[in-house]
């Protein structure tokens, strides 16, 4: 469990990091918190020739509220996000998801941007960003660009990020009036990757829900927005009959797969159960 040999460089600025990325001709890995990368290297599942350590780029670190968005720098540690009053106020879904992300030791090192860039299909944060309509900010040598979260996640561990780009920040619209969030996850042990998970966000008026976004994770190669289910829910009061209808609609939205912990059938059952729990939580 020792990595293959690689060169290591720690740039002090974003520009320097981007130059290194574009100048490199071999396989490059970007080191942020290292909580997924280091095991991958040690298990020799990947053998990059160059490791670019971005931990010295302080401009990528931190949370700030700018007008109607909350901006989370890519290097912000999960622990900082978890304890942020701004996050709790303006993006409560993220705050709800945080305790489910691994364990304190991992949250102390692991970064928000790292989770997004890795795009593990069973991870919590990509689904949360899809539910919240977040925007991913990406820097390249040609400048900065943004892409919506739902377009960012392409396939299993595949994102819109090009080889010579860096994910720099995530921008989440601050919680609008009347909107609420719910987060549900089933994992074999606390802190494990989910067997099935759901990040839900919608406009709540009494028992009525609209503009509902149900973002499932661990049921596909990317987070899955359950559009049919959301359409069924639109404008309806949350109640037993409505929940059954939404659950049925999930059959059209989700096509889960077997994994080591459970079968596709169990994942579908869980998706329905979590939908029920989340909808009830939205009006609690």
């Amino acid at each position: 469990m020792k990595p293959s040999p690689f060169d290591y460089v720690k740039p002090a600025s974003l520009g320097e990091a981007l130059s290194l990325l574009s100048d490199s001709d071999g396989e490059v890995a970007v080191l942020a918190g290292g909580q997924s990368l280091m095991p991958t290297l040690n298990m020799r599942l990947s053998s990059p020739s160059l490791l670019i350590d971005i931990n010295g780029i302080t401009e990528l670190d931190g949370i700030e509220v700018v007008e109607d968005v909350i901006r989370i720098g890519a290097l912000t540690r999960h622990q900082v996000v978890q304890s942020s009053a701004d996050i709790a106020q303006h993006a409560p879904l993220i705050a709800m998801a945080m305790p489910h992300i691994a364990h304190p030791a991992i949250r102390n090192r692991g970064t928000f941007g790292g989770s997004i860039a890795l795009a593990d299909p069973a991870a919590e944060l990509p689904a949360c960003l899809c539910a919240l309509g977040a925007t991913i900010e990406i820097a390249g040598n040609k400048g900065r660009r943004t892409v919506s979260a739902v377009d960012f996640f392409k396939d299993l561990y595949e994102t819109d990020l090009a080889d010579d780009e860096l994910l720099t920040a995530v921008e989440i619209p601050v919680l609008a009036d009347g909107y609420r969030s719910a987060f549900e996850e089933l994992a074999r042990r606390h802190g494990d990757y989910a067997m099935t998970g759901l990040a839900a966000h919608g406009l709540i008026d009494g028992d009525k829900v609209s503009d509902l976004r149900l973002a499932f994770f661990a049921v596909g190669g990317t987070p899955v927005l359950a559009k049919n289910a959301a359409a069924v829910a639109e404008g309806k009061n949350i109640g037993d009959e409505m929940i059954s209808a939404v659950q049925s609609a999930l059959e059209k939205d989700l096509d889960p797969f077997d994994d080591l912990n459970c079968s596709a059938a169990v994942k579908m059952l869980y998706a329905k159960e979590l939908t029920s729990r989340a909808l009830k939580a939205l009006i609690r």
Partner: peptide, 10 residues
């Protein structure tokens, strides 16, 4: 990660 041993929380 995939072979599950019992942990304190459970």
């Amino acid at each position: 990660a995939d072979y599950l041993v019992p942990m304190a929380v459970e």
